[in-house]
Design a protein around this nucleic acid. Structure first.
Length: 862
RNA sequence: GCCGAGGUGGCGGAAUUGGUAGACGCGCUGGAUUCAGGAUCCAGUGGGGAUACCCCCGUGCGGGUUCGAGUCCCGCCCUCGGCACCA
């Protein structure tokens, strides 16, 4: 019996694909285009199961669309700048470039072994100056348009990575990469004006409804954080300047009893100076910066510093004290808040702590608020009280009325504020794209001339042992001449956030050889990406930056689209249960006995099996793709990744599960190989089925039903697990049929050929190597990778008989096999003839009959 | 606290529009084959009662709508994810 040898089959077909270059694409006006993209990997060394899953899903879509006649762009590249390269360099004494390129070579081989249908000609690595030079040009152009700028501000500093992080890159107050708590630090750096696009980025989400996961849309919406309200100006006693506050509750204006300023607010500084509190304020500001994490998590108690100054209420003229408060952020709104303790919980707590007055200006309908008795702020709407001319209005209406009044008086205006902050892109790191600006003592900040690009990252740098960037000390890099005046000048030594590279790589894939950053025509042909696939961890980060950058490139004239990714699939993680011994800690599966005891040093302790979680080396619950490919072959690994769960859900790794996938492929291989000889020259059945025996007609029906089912699952839902299940069902059905049908039946071989041919075609996007092999064995022409997707015959798929469920009082009592068109009368008679039904009806009256044609009949009796 | 997703056999998961709950796979049980193990093949496999026909119960919990609810409505519990002093 033929033995399934995946390693032979797989290398054979990978070579054929490679030699014939069948996955290379170019623009073809005669075919509809389809661009499938998976988030490109960071070349960390080896691919992990998460990559395998991500890229398998993408490959199935690419191969399927190709079979459907699309001109498919399916590229792959490397997100090759980043900190791990520098860390590895320090640890192993290799240069980040060597480390990165070695990893790329290894990982490329791994991807090839999995049989992914990439157009490798388009491969790119972002650390290549032929890639990042274009990004430097974008930056210069952004600078001209004010979309990039430099400012000094409080930034998130990761002490372990020795660099600044953008707000999006801080999770729960910690660095997203290494988990170290970030500290607040005042620094100069470069920013991209993403806030200029806040409204457009928010509005664009609407168009993605139904095409992106709702969850991602919600997360982005929250992150942008639009809120509508008003700016209101307060005069300051003894000062010419006014303090402008932002509020979403102008209706509570009459309830203001004090103002809170951010400790970073310039006015706080001025007031403190006058009151001789400069040192006190500086200390307070320092404390707030240090405790930022606690403050943001709401753990820190509210704290304030009275600045011994008063503001004048714009409408009542009342004197209200001014505080610096630890919970007021300089970066949001105006950095100043009007405090309404009766109707804002934060202000309430602050007022209680410092004994400040509480003034009720909104009354709920069902009770009376007494400021003396309040235990928490009343934040809901109600009826205005103590509010001058606005008293008696519903608070929701008063919001507008108050603002209109202020606008008339020149004391305030409507204002929309976003939570989104500008994107800080400066990184104090070596292994990244140099920011192409020069500092000249005479001319100030000067961008590099476009013709001098790229500003190459020097590869001769000696890495600093403490992990700091060597660039500032590298004279040959820093020392330069000013592009404007020709005098001596210094280069910027910060590099870009690596998210800048990944913000436009999908566009470069459309025209990787273009001399210009992008070839408008090619980009226009290929973009947008029709299907993008990647992890949910980039719900905000990469996906928001890429949406922003696409719009910038549009406004710079490079692209003519708004949204880069038409459809988005966020695949779940690959997870596995970890094992832990009370004495020896985390264990590898092979360190656990079949009885569930620890095998380390003859320990014998009962092993604790954790709930499945993300694979990580530290918990010893990783599965190595190389090892699995070696054991079972790429097709089996791919099949299991697709079969074990629908793509958006987490996938639990199972050693038994992958065995099952292997078993299935082996069975299919043997089935086809056994029959291949006799079927070689047989033509697939092409009749109308009337000449077939009932068994063969049924097999044919199942075949066409399966084509329909698999097509739907791949086309509409991307639910590969149910598609595979359907093919398995077909094979089970085929084997049952073979047992029932005489081998001499003349139509057997054509029908069998049709079925096997179909099975192989349907599985081809998922397990391409095996299917090429079986396609060839069946005597079919050409490569299955280039074959057309099968179409189904509606007539052949139609059931000759349908199952009609018979219920009595809603309980299933029997089922009938009848022709699909059977009318109520026929069904009713057949149903009443059934003894199983009779038993439940006898002696009772039929009150009602519910008939659903082709499905069911229900007798309601009493 | 707010928002979102989810809760179905021993396990991963099906059930696309309110119409036979548990497809497909794993595991398990029994049998065949084998010196034996493995591999393979066959049969069974939600729970309970009867072991012959059948009957009752069953999709997190409690209500409801309906001839009929995993699916719709109301209330609650639990798990996971995101956001959270953003004025």
């Amino acid at each position: 019996m033929a033995e399934y040898r995946p390693e032979e089959i797989e290398s054979k077909w990978q070579k054929v694909w490679e030699e014939r270059g069948i996955f290379r694409v170019s623009e073809d006006p005669d075919k509809p285009k389809y661009y499938v993209l998976e988030m490109f990997p960071y070349p960390s060394g080896r691919i992990h199961m998460g990559h395998v899953r991500n890229y398998t899903i993408g490959d199935v879509i690419a191969r399927y669309k190709r079979m459907r006649g699309f001109n498919v762009l399916h590229p792959m590249g490397w997100d090759a700048f980043g900190l791990p390269a520098e860390n590895a360099a320090l640890k192993h004494g290799v240069h980040p470039a060597d480390w990165t390129y070695d990893n790329i070579d290894y990982m490329r081989r791994q991807l090839r072994r999995l049989g992914f249908s990439y157009d490798w000609i388009r491969e790119l690595a972002t650390c290549d100056h032929e890639y990042y030079r274009h990004e430097q040009l974008f930056f210069i152009q952004m600078l001209e348009r004010g979309l990039a700028y430099r400012k000094k501000t409080l930034v998130n500093w990761c002490p372990s990575c020795h660099t600044v992080l953008a707000n999006e890159q801080v999770e729960d107050g910690a660095c997203w990469r290494c988990g170290t708590e970030v500290i607040q630090r005042e620094m100069e750096g470069w920013f991209f004006r993403i806030t200029a696009y806040a409204e457009e980025l928010l509005a664009g989400l609407e168009k993605l409804r139904g095409k992106w996961p709702e969850k991602v849309l919600t997360m982005q919406r929250n992150w942008i954080g639009k809120s509508e309200g008003a700016e209101i100006e307060f005069a300051v006693e003894g000062f010419p300047e006014r303090i402008t506050v932002f509020t979403t509750r102008p209706d509570t204006l009459y309830g203001v009893t004090f103002l809170s300023l951010s400790p970073e607010h310039p006015m706080a500084e001025r007031l403190a100076e006058r009151a001789g509190l400069t040192q006190a304020l500086a200390d307070f500001r320092e404390r707030c910066r240090r405790a930022r994490r606690e403050i943001e998590e709401g753990l820190a108690e509210k704290e304030g510093l009275f600045l011994e100054a008063h503001a004048i209420h714009p409408l009542t003229g009342a004197r209200v004290p001014i505080f610096a408060a630890n919970f007021v952020l300089m970066e949001y709104g105006t950095g100043a808040v009007m405090a309404v303790p009766a109707h804002d919980q934060r202000d309430f707590e602050f007022a209680k702590k410092y004994g400040l007055p509480i003034k009720v200006v909104i009354q709920p309908e069902d009770r009376d608020l007494d400021p003396e008795q309040l235990e928490e702020a009343y934040e809901a709407p109600g009826i205005m009280v103590n509010s001058g001319p606005f008293t008696g209005l519903p608070s929701e209406d008063a919001k507008r009325a108050v603002v209109e009044h202020l606008e008339k008086e020149g004391l305030g205006r409507r204002r929309v504020t976003y939570r989104l902050r500008d994107w800080g892109v400066s990184r104090q790191r070596y292994w990244g794209c140099p920011i192409p600006v020069i500092y000249c003592d005479r001319c100030g900040i000067v961008p590099e001339k476009p013709e001098n690009l790229p500003v190459k990252l020097p590869l001769n740098a000696q890495l600093d042992e403490a992990g700091r960037s060597p660039l500032p000390k590298l004279e040959s890099f820093v020392k330069t001449t000013c592009p404007r005046c020709g005098g001596p000048a210094r280069r910027e030594t910060d590099t870009f956030d690596t998210f800048v590279e990944s913000s436009w790589y999908f566009a470069r894939f459309a025209c990787p050889e273009a001399k210009d950053p992008l070839d408008r025509e090619k980009a226009h042909y290929w973009l947008p990406v029709d299907q993008y696939i990647g992890g949910i961890e980039h719900a905000i980060l990469h996906l928001l930056y890429a949406r922003f950058f696409t719009r910038v490139l549009r406004d710079l004239g490079y692209l003519d689209l708004d949204e880069p990714f038409e459809r988005l699939l966020t695949q779940g993680m690959v997870i596995k249960e970890p094992y832990r011994c009370p004495k020896h800690g985390w264990l590898y599966p092979e360190e656990v006995s079949p009885e569930g005891t620890c095998l380390k040093e003859g320990c014998g302790e009962k092993v604790i099996v954790g709930r499945p979680e993300k694979m990580s080396k530290s918990k010893c619950n990783v599965v190595d793709p190389d090892e699995m490919i070696r054991r079972y072959g790429a097709d089996t690994v791919r099949l299991f990744m697709l079969f074990a769960a629908p793509p958006e859900r987490d996938l639990e790794w199972s050693d038994h599960g992958i065995e099952g996938a292997y078993r299935f492929l082996k069975r299919l291989y043997q089935l086809v190989k056994e029959r291949a000889g006799e079927l070689w020259e047989v033509k697939a059945y092409a009749g109308d089925g009337r000449d077939l025996s009932p068994e063969l007609r049924a097999l044919r029906r199942k075949t066409h039903q399966t084509i329909r089912k698999v097509t739907q699952d791949l086309e509409e839902r991307l639910h590969f697990n149910t598609a595979i299940a359907a093919v398995m069902e077909l094979i089970n059905f085929l084997e049952d049929t073979l047992k029932k049908v005489s081998p001499n039946e003349p139509a057997l071989q054509p029908v069998l050929k049709e079925t096997l041919r179909t099975v192989v075609l349907l599985l081809a996007p998922m397990t391409p190597h095996l299917c090429e092999e079986l396609w060839e064995a069946l005597g079919e022409e050409g490569l299955i990778s280039e074959a057309a997707w099968p179409s189904f015959d509606e007539e052949a798929a139609r059931e000759e008989e349908v199952t009609i469920v018979v219920q009595v009082n809603g309980k299933v009592r029997d089922n009938l096999r009848l022709p699909p068109g059977a009318d109520e009368e026929t069904v009713r008679e057949a149903a009443l003839a059934s003894p199983k039904v009779k038993r439940h009806i006898e002696g009772k009256t039929i009150r009602k009959v519910v008939f659903v044609p082709g499905r069911l009949i229900n007798f309601v009796v009493a």
